[in-house]
Simulated scan of single mutants.
Amino acid sequence: MTGEVAVLGAGMHPWGKWGRSFVEYGAAAARAALADAGLEWRDVGSVVGADTVRGGYPGYVAGATFAKALGWQGARVASVYAACASGAQAVDAARAQILSGLADVVLVVGADAAPKGFFRPAGGDRPDDPDWLRFRVLGATNPTYFGLYARRRMAVHGDTVEDFAQVKVKNSAMGALNPYARYRKRVTAEEVAASAVVAEPLRLLDICATSDGGAALVLSSVEFARHRGVDRPVRIRAVSTVTPRYPNTVLDLPDIATDSAVAVEPHPDTFRASIAKAAYEEADLGPEDLSLAEAYDLSTALELQWYEDLGLCEEGEAAKLLREGATTLGGRIPVNASGGLASFGEAVPAQAIAQICELTWQLRQQAGERQVAGARAGITANQGLFGHGSAVVAVR
């Protein structure tokens, strides 16, 4: 397909709490990706950095920061921020450069050094910032939101706290097999149930941590890859960065009317479902063609929601899919074979890139003990703040 680009290299810095600069993590991941690609830093024509708001000024110009760390060599540079979708947005920018002929080889890098505890809104007290408002006015920190979403699934679909715990059990078992994961210990359902309640009904082990880490990709045109002797490279076939869709927007209601005549039916697709739908349409694939998925498991309940939004099952059937073992290794459609954020924690600019690293290794049959047998196509999915969608489809 004309929109495809090749993944020549994938590299990561292990997740953890290392207490060092995000630049160190990103540079290490970049060097690993270049080594994996069999290329030198001087071969790179462009660098796209996924920004972090926690690294001071260098974090806001991550592309230039990583280029400097690797050594100035004249490469084109760009920096992208979209919160949790930053990595996918960076990949999208890199793809555009390759397809337009601006660069043959583009390095994409994301890294973070995250504080312990809540991610605070950037810039201090900001009454004009919706993130600040939900924290300070509503008291709706991220775990509160996750808990509300879990309660909704319990009320609407009959999910149970035991179902949520099984997501953690599944992901921890796969994360234990991943050398880049921060948490490499299997967790039992009893341990999840015994952990502290954070936002009812979710417990500490239902919610992902904040972490340090880095990830990088070396992307090129398919023609360049074949010229390098890579006849069957992993290819990125779609990158979805869509915004939500509404059928109508009523800006001014007459006299603040509550008349139902001005109401409209909601769009049939949720935001997350529309992210996946756009990716499938661009890739000319469907959920039935997938071998695996890497989904954004900020909480265990949210992973279940992604099953439905990715079309892996019908609405309300996510817990059933989990109970059947379909989403674990050996199942019909393993989800988060990497271990997911449950095993890594959030290093925000790096996580969407890390998901593509996992797809790359899986599609190359290089994932070791967590290998999904016969993997040929996979999708990633996450969601950034304020309408930033993110899904990537990779094939081989």
Score class of each variant (00 low, 15 high):
Ala318Tyr: 00
Trp306Thr: 05
Pro266Tyr: 14
Glu303Trp: 10
Glu281Asn: 13
Ala189Ile: 06
Tyr280Gln: 01
Ala283Cys: 13
Ser260Trp: 07
Gly311Ile: 02
Asp255Tyr: 08
Val230Ala: 11
Glu315Ala: 13
Arg237Ser: 15
Ala276Val: 10
Val230Arg: 09
Ala283Ile: 08
Asp206Asn: 09
Ala181Thr: 07
Val187Ala: 02
Asp255Gly: 14
Ala225Lys: 01
Asp284Val: 15
Ser274Met: 00
Glu223Thr: 04
Arg184Tyr: 07
Asp284Ser: 14
Glu191Gln: 10
Pro247Lys: 05
Gly229Tyr: 02
Val230Gly: 06
Lys320Asp: 12
Pro254Gly: 02
Lys320Gly: 11
Leu217Asn: 01
Ser260Tyr: 06
Ala276Tyr: 05
Glu308Pro: 02
Pro233Arg: 00
Ile256Phe: 15
Ile256Ala: 15
Thr188Gly: 06
Pro254Asn: 01
Asp231Phe: 05
Ala257Trp: 07
Pro268Arg: 12
Arg226Cys: 03
Tyr296Ala: 06
Glu314Arg: 15
Gly286Cys: 03
Val218Tyr: 01
Lys185Ile: 10
Ser299Thr: 02
Val239Phe: 10
Leu219Val: 08
Leu219Arg: 00
Asp309Gln: 11
Ala189Lys: 03
Lys277Ile: 12
Glu281Ala: 11
Asp297Gln: 01
Thr188Val: 03
Pro233Tyr: 06
His227Gly: 13
Ile256Asn: 15
Ala209Phe: 03
Lys320Leu: 12
Ile275Arg: 03
Leu202Tyr: 00
Leu321Glu: 09
Ala199Trp: 00
Glu282Cys: 14
Glu308Val: 03
Pro287Lys: 11
Leu202Val: 01
Val197His: 10
Asn248Leu: 15
Thr300Phe: 06
Glu303Thr: 13
Leu202Asp: 04
Tyr280Phe: 10
Arg182His: 10
Pro233Trp: 07
Phe271Arg: 01
Arg232Lys: 14
Arg245Phe: 14
Ser195His: 00
His267Lys: 14
Ser274Asn: 00
Ala196His: 02
Ala225Arg: 03
Asp252Val: 12
Ala209Asn: 05
Arg203Cys: 01
Arg226Leu: 05
Asp212Cys: 08
Leu302Ala: 07
Glu303Pro: 03
Val218Ile: 14
Thr270Trp: 08
Glu288Tyr: 12
Arg203Pro: 02
Lys277Cys: 07
Glu191Arg: 04
Pro254Asp: 04
Ala278Asn: 03
Thr188Leu: 08
Lys185Gln: 10
Glu294Arg: 05
Phe224Ala: 08
Ala295Glu: 13
Tyr307Thr: 06
Ala273Gln: 05
Ala196Phe: 02
Ala283Phe: 08
Glu308Lys: 07
Thr300Glu: 03
Glu200Lys: 15
Pro266Thr: 05
Lys185Ser: 10
Ile236Leu: 07
Val198Leu: 05
Val218Ser: 00
Ser195Arg: 09
Glu308Tyr: 00
Pro201Asn: 07
Arg184His: 13
Thr210Lys: 00
Thr243Glu: 09
Ser291Val: 06
Phe224Met: 08
Leu285Asn: 01
Ala225His: 02
Thr188His: 04
Arg232Pro: 06
Val230Asp: 14
Arg235Ala: 09
Ala209Lys: 06
Val197Ile: 11
Ala319His: 02
Ala263Lys: 05
Asp309Met: 06
Glu223Cys: 09
Arg182Ala: 06
Glu282Leu: 08
Leu253Cys: 05
Gln305Cys: 13
Asp255His: 15
Gly316Leu: 06
Pro266Arg: 09
Ala215Arg: 03
Arg182Gly: 07
Ala263Thr: 10
Glu265Cys: 11
Val250Thr: 12
